[in-house]
Design a protein around this nucleic acid. Structure first.
Lengths: 342, 342
DNA sequence: TTGAAAGCGCTAACAG
DNA sequence: CTGTTAGCGCTTTCAA
């Protein structure tokens, strides 16, 4: 009924509270024999430490740092706003969150920031990663300094980080491919792609999944090499607009990065009769409007609020060295069509 | 840096700890004037009670009861398994979860169970609701006895319960309509619907959303009145099979309840050349297989693990009388096509 | 290498 | 009506 405490363990092992504590936190200064007696008592009683009591006693605080790309796209704005709200709420749980910005797509700047982080001030880091060796190295160093690191939204594959919170981007790309393929059914032509930059893993993965599905399931369509819009609406508008104008065979567009407004603007410029199916990422005021007026056919979305919550939760469980290491639910890709907008 | 404690409040207000405690937990036996002095101190210091410390001191435990429909469908099985795992994990947070089963679609049995619940043993209830007045009344009584109540998966609209954790079923129906409508494009005919029972709110809501979209966006299709499959695969197989055989004009099926196996079996029996588009709910081994072999076109899914976690979280926050009352993220409808299966 | 004792922030008797 | 005191389960000096 009432679970065992260190008192029970101490009594069962015939030692004092402090000794139990030493074993629990594997501090040294305990004879191997004593140690095993304590461990045995813990095992037979099924003791599990009361984290709340431990944290109270030790005045534990979790100091987290979130690193986001500096930029003006709607999705990152939303992410930042959600983070601000969650940070306020997290204070109640003794979690202090600091937000830092680095220039988007700039691996050097990100690495430098990581390198500047002081383990005396920061316990854990969540970052929207730029995928580059220099970043990987900086993460490894940070971890060596005892800081927990997870990636958020865009991953940094490899063992350097301790977790990723975000959608499965390959799967998102497959979903986009499957939808766009079906939307274009009955017509044959070319498909344009717009990415932000292939330097961020999420866009690269989306492209992979998208091409996979289109090649195998919809071989009648031809893929054009992706434009790099750098998540900038003007650049996207200009490049995509030019491509569409030059190539009347384009019947579908997949935009895997930000810059939805640019995509919409490029499409508005087309001659009235031309029918282009469009799938983009992230539900924003612009993509929403474009969905409603029929310019976009589907929007794939990730819930940034949930992502922020997941990252906080994951970092805390890592810092608690919780076992089993808490399974944070993966973030699902949400699909919006004109008729199911929330 | 370090947040204020009741000691600080007591000192600022010139009273003892107990008095502060009395005010905090609004117990009586405090003169109005003293009370306001304490409240003022709390306000000016920005004091917020440390819930962990309070719970430790009062040996707080959260005793929750989950009520699920008894039945053999895959989704409820998955829900139950997830609940079992989450219950084990919740123990660490002093949350004890008991699971109860009632016959599916049986409002009387559910109401009776609710009436039998003892507030001395249970602090909060999460239930998959059957939508009936008798249930509504039982919930109201339970709440009056001081028990927190939320609905899970299927809602009980009204002020009786304190929250709902599940998908937006009207939106799910709209999504189904939007997808099926597009899948049937180019063909004109009739659309069959299979529900479990209109006594559960989720199916009724799905139907609503589905019909809305089909009527307005795809008026060329004709809707047939829904079959009641009672979530039973054999019944679904027989009824739908008969309907499909009798009516060669049926080109689409929307199944909004359980019994996916029955749906798949009914379709397998069709003559080779017949093309029927199908949208169903819940990703299960059967629906997955049917998606892969092309029998089903899309599966709408709700993540039961997330729903269980959400319900636990919500009940705990209600019991803590937390303010603001913790916003539990809505559960998104996940859409699976053959190419984006996880 | 071990133990005793004080204290984390809050609650709950029990006195006054 | 208000205050004193002894915990809740765990950690942390400080002695031994």
């Amino acid at each position: 009924m009432t679970r065992p405490t260190i008192h029970d363990v101490a009594r069962a092992a015939g030692v004092s509270l402090s000794t139990v504590d030493r074993v629990l936190n594997d501090r040294d200064g305990v004879r191997e024999k004593t140690r095993s007696r304590v461990l045995e008592a813990i095992g037979s009683l099924g003791f599990e430490r009361n984290l709340a009591a431990a944290n109270l006693s030790r005045k534990r605080r979790y100091r987290l740092c979130f690193i986001l790309p500096d930029g003006q796209n709607s999705f990152m704005h939303a992410l930042e706003a959600d983070l601000a709200e969650e940070a306020a709420a997290a204070l109640r749980d003794f979690t202090v969150i600091e937000t830092r910005k680095v220039p988007a797509f700039d691996a050097g700047a990100l690495a430098e920031l990581l390198r500047s982080l002081d383990p005396e001030t920061v316990d854990g880091v969540a970052m929207v990663a730029t995928d580059a060796t220099i970043v990987r190295v900086a993460v490894r160093e940070l971890r060596a300094r005892g800081v927990a690191v997870v990636t958020l939204v865009s991953d940094l594959p490899g063992a350097e980080k301790q977790g990723f919170v975000g959608i499965d981007n390959v799967q998102a790309g497959r979903t986009a491919g499957s939808l766009l393929g079906r939307f274009c059914r009955g017509r044959t032509g070319r498909i344009a792609m717009v990415s932000g930059s292939m330097l961020v893993r999420d866009h690269a993965e989306r492209r992979l999944g998208f091409e996979q599905v289109l090649r195998t399931e919809f071989p009648e369509q031809t893929l054009i090499a992706p434009l790099e819009g750098l998540d900038d609406k003007d650049r996207v508008r200009d490049q995509l607009g030019a491509q569409l104008a030059a190539d009347p065979e384009i019947i579908g567009v997949y935009s895997m990065g930000a810059g939805n407004r640019g995509v919409a603007e490029a499409l508005v410029g087309l001659p009235a009769g031309r029918d282009v199916s469009v799938v983009v990422h992230e539900l924003t005021p612009y993509s929403r409007e474009a969905l409603l007026d029929g310019t976009f056919d589907a929007v794939l979305h990730q819930n940034s609020r949930r992502e922020v919550q997941g990252a906080i939760q994951l970092l805390r469980s890592l810092l608690d060295a919780q076992f089993p290491p808490l399974f944070v639910q993966p973030i699902p890709v949400e699909i919006y069509l004109r008729d199911n907008l929330p």
